[in-house]
Design a protein around this nucleic acid. Sequence first.
DNA 1: GCTTTGAGTATGTTCAAACATACTTCGGAT
DNA 2: ATCCGAAGTATGTTTGAACATACTCAAAGC
Lengths: 243, 243
Amino acid sequence: MKHQVDPNSKVPLHSQVERMLRTLIRQPEYQQGAFLPKEVDLANQLGISRNTVRHGISKLVNEGLLVRKKGVGTKVAQRKVSTRLDHWASFSGEMKAKGMEVVNYELESRFVPADMEVAEAFQVSPGTKVLKLSRLRGTSEGPSLLSVSWFHPRLGLSGQEDFSQPLYQMLEREIGVYPTVSREEISAIAAEKKLASRLEVREGAPILFRRRAVFDSDGKAMEFNKVYYQGEGFTYSIDIERK
Amino acid sequence: MKHQVDPNSKVPLHSQVERMLRTLIRQPEYQQGAFLPKEVDLANQLGISRNTVRHGISKLVNEGLLVRKKGVGTKVAQRKVSTRLDHWASFSGEMKAKGMEVVNYELESRFVPADMEVAEAFQVSPGTKVLKLSRLRGTSEGPSLLSVSWFHPRLGLSGQEDFSQPLYQMLEREIGVYPTVSREEISAIAAEKKLASRLEVREGAPILFRRRAVFDSDGKAMEFNKVYYQGEGFTYSIDIERK
DNA sequence: GCTTTGAGTATGTTCAAACATACTTCGGAT
DNA sequence: ATCCGAAGTATGTTTGAACATACTCAAAGC
């Protein structure tokens, strides 16, 4: 009838199952909390073994996309986004890993004079022209974060770069800089009116605010960045090792 | 003197394998790049099936701790990210550096049964008695944070220790453990009624919430900790270095 | 000497089957 | 009607087996 699987393909069956499920669970009924077909049924319907089906499902469970409950069934997990340092603070990468689409609600880049804060971070005179990039990003369900970045003039960005692709990959490819060190400050703030409306939360809602300076491998500042994460279900994960 | 596995235990074999490997790969030879024993050998040596061994290994591969290479073998992955923290999350130290006095508004320690979350973090059975330490701390101007810690029973704490002094210094001096790695999750939440009243903020005020597991130099979990920072003017600083 | 071939090795994929365990539900006993 | 236990359901664990595939290395072939 609908989704099938090709035993002669060179892509493993469990991967096909995985991909099939990824598509399947995007359907509204599953977002609504409906249970997936039971493993045994899936196996029969696809004409493969239950173990293989489980293998595919497990992948998604590991990613936190699905939740299994013994004796009950498997359904789509309540979305909790968490940033892992593996992806080095790449929102696009993080979302892609979760099988979610990144939506850029707003994207604007233009040159502005550096304010005190930016000038301090970049060690340039206030008023120096720097490229400012504002991005309102999220999933199809709505905006998740507002990110505002300033780039060091040394990088020689034109403002015409394609900022819709993963930022650090783009920077590395286009101008060969590679972010290496990040100095961050994180705090919780209340959304003021304007911010609340852009992030589509109520005024005063908790916002995870991160201010950071990013340095390249030579230890020179390249980016100054402020991010406002819509608090609901958003988590920032880090591993810290003391040497 | 081999690592073994107990088929009669209620913890699944693949989990036992997982834990066993976690310990095993901490040994220097594996950090050096040595290959793990082959799956078939492991299976034979432990007297279990290769599939079960694979199941255990897969978990670690998923976490990025191990790398498998077809036709070659499995070894410890090259560590990519490492994070440093200057004051290493010592509230006392931080305040002292600012020339402010630390006030303990509440301080309570007692033994409680481990809930699922704590049991998971410590790799013990739920219900195991663990020492729980609650501290409401701040400056003379009012409480700044509520910290709740659980300590691994392995540490052998009596609950009679002097928890009013800097925690990690005390632990190091008293029982010789030394916090080395911290795995953290940070998010912004709204203060619910009870929390709001203890931190003396209005209900719904933004709270910086940090959940973390702290590990000693052997990589064994020693503390599980939740902290609620009163958001106003409170900032969490970290330095991240990508290797 | 250099390339090709092939045997050997270790992981990768898939299957069928059995039993364990957590959860739900429904019917019977109190 | 309420409580309790048994039957049913769906996932969780484990096994053993077979074959596929990527990689290594060395011997055979040019």
